[in-house]
Amino acid sequence: MTTLESISEGLGSNQSWVEKGGVHWLEPGAMTVRELAQTMNALKARFITITAYQLPKQEGFRLEYHWDLDGQLLGFPFQLAGNSIDSIYDLCEAVDWIEREIHEGFAIDFLGRDYEPLLLRQGDQLGVNLREEVKK
């Protein structure tokens, strides 16, 4: 069993890894983002970033969580129907600024954490930079 297969088994996922665009992707299925963070911590994977996308036609958002495992870039896409998702800040210190930046850029709430003052000094309005409804 490869490392990637053992990860998907450990996460209880019946999905297969797909290598595309330089990333090994795994659809999270029923797994929560907090379960994912705990698994990545146990594997000593290095958190890299979260990339947020606003989906067309008011379909919500997609957040792609990226970790590095021994030089392999792993990606886990989470679809958000609403505007919120659990924070993993208490499990992974490295997400602090990117959660804050996405909160400010897309007006997405990461539940279970406090925010310090804005990272982005201008605008003074959530979503002012990247959220379609606001930036227009």
Binding site: K20, G21, G22, V23, I48, T49, T51, E64, H66, L73, G75
Partner: peptide, 18 residues
Amino acid sequence: TGTATSRVEAPRGEVMYS
């Protein structure tokens, strides 16, 4: 159509583009 990601070791460390 879709997403692609790349990483490079910059002088200050890893840069990643999606």
